[in-house]
Design a protein around this nucleic acid. Sequence first.
DNA 1: CAGAATGATTTCAG
DNA 2: CTGAAATCATTCTG
Length: 441
Amino acid sequence: MDEQPRLMHSHGVGMAGHPGLAQHMQDGTAGTDGEGRKQDIGDILQQIMTITDQSLDEAQARKHALNCHRMKPALFNVLCEIKEKTVLSIRGAQEEEPPDPQLMRLDNMLLAEGVAGPEKGGGSAAAAAAAAATGGVGADNSAEHSDYRAKLTQIRQIYHTELEKYEQACNEFTTHVMNLLREQSRTRPISPKEIERMVGIIHRKFSSIQMQLKQSTCEAVMILRSRFLDARRKRRNFNKQATEILNEYFYSHLSNPYPSEEAKEELAKKCSITVSQVTRINKATYLDCVVSNWFGNKRIRYKKNIGKFQEEANMYAARTAVTATSVSAHGSQANSPSTPNSAGSAGSFNMSNSGDLFMSVQSLNGDSYQGGQVGANIQSQVDTLRHVISQTGGYSDSLAASQMYSPQAINTNGGWQDAPTPSSVTSPTEGPGSVHSDTSN
DNA sequence: CAGAATGATTTCAG
DNA sequence: CTGAAATCATTCTG
C-alpha cells in the first residue's frame, strides 16, 4: 500500500497530462478552472497518503469515500499503468517456459505403466509385458499377476485421489487468491494481468507438488514391478525331465555344445519348458532364450569344473552309448523311453570305438543304468580301463576319467570353438528320435 | 540355516 | 548380435 504515495510523488505532475485522467477531469470538473482541478487532485492525493496514519475505522471510512470519489477510476487506471511499466515489465520475460522434460518423462512412464492412462486400462503396457514375459501363463503365474494388478490398481487409486486432492486444493487456493486480489484491486492498483500472473505462480507451485507425487508413484510402480516381474526372483528350476533332455544334448554334443536355432527350438519343445523366467522378451522366442541360457550356463560351469561334472558326463555318455549299442544291436528303432532324443549322437565324442568305451564308462560310473543290457563282458573292460587310466600319470582316477570324455573338444584356451572337426564325427547311427545332429552350423 | 545348485542378467569382447 | 565370464537372486539340500 505504501507504494502508492511514492508513485504519486514521483509522477504527480506528469499525471495531469495523462489522457485518461484528463478525460475524467474534463467530464467531471466541467466549468471549474485549472486551479480548482489542481486543488482537487492534491486533496485526493493528500487523503490517500495519510490514510495509513489513520485509525482502522477512520481509514475504512476514508477508503470508502475515496472509492466513491469521481476521480477514482482515472487514478486507478493511471496507477495500474505505471505499475505495469515499472514493476511487471521487469519479469515479464520469463513467460511460457517449455514443458519440463522431467515431468514429461514421468507422465510418459505413468501412462506406460497404466497408472495415468484411461481408467480400466487392463491391457497396460506393464501388464502386457508381464503377460508376454510369462508366455503360456500357468495357474501359479495368474495368481501372481492378479496380485500384481491389484497392487497396481491400489497405486493407481492413491495416485488419482492424491492428484484430485491437489487439483482441488490448487483451484480453491487460486480462487481464494483471485478473490483477494480482486478485492484488493479496489484499493490498490492490480491489473488483470497481474492476477493472471499470480495464478500462474500458484499453478507452478502446485505442479511441482504434483511432480513429487508423480515421482513417488513412479518409484512405487518400479518397486512393484521389480518385486513381481523381475524374472530373477521368479526363478523356477526346470523339472527333471527337461534337465535330462538338455543334459543329454549337451553331453552328446560335447565337442560342440552350441545348438542351432532349430535345435534350440526343438529342445525347448521337447522339454516343454513352461517358462516364467524370461525377461528378454524381445528375443525371437523366449524358449530359445531359456535354452540358450541353459547352454550358456552349462558350458561355462562345465568348463570351469570338469571334474565336478564328470559323473554326470559319464552317466549321460553311458546312456547315449547304451542307446547306440542297442541301435546297432537291433538294427532299428533306438528310442529309449526316457531318452527320446539321445540316439546316435555318440559320435561327437570323436572316438573310433565309442561303443565299447561308453559301456565301460557306464560301468565305471557304478551306475546301474540299464546295466543288464550291457552284458557281463563289459566289466572286464572296466578293469583294463582303470589300469590304463592309472598309468596316464599325474591325474587322479576321477580326473583321468574325465579326460576321456570331455576335454578333447576343449583346447587349452578353454574354448570349444577351436575344437577339432566337430562336424566330422557325427554318429553314423543317428536314430529317428534325434533332435539334430551335431552339425555345428 | 548355510552352502550348493541353478536360472537369469549384466558386462564385455569379437 | 552371440557367447564368455562374472554376478545376482532364488531354490534346493543336507
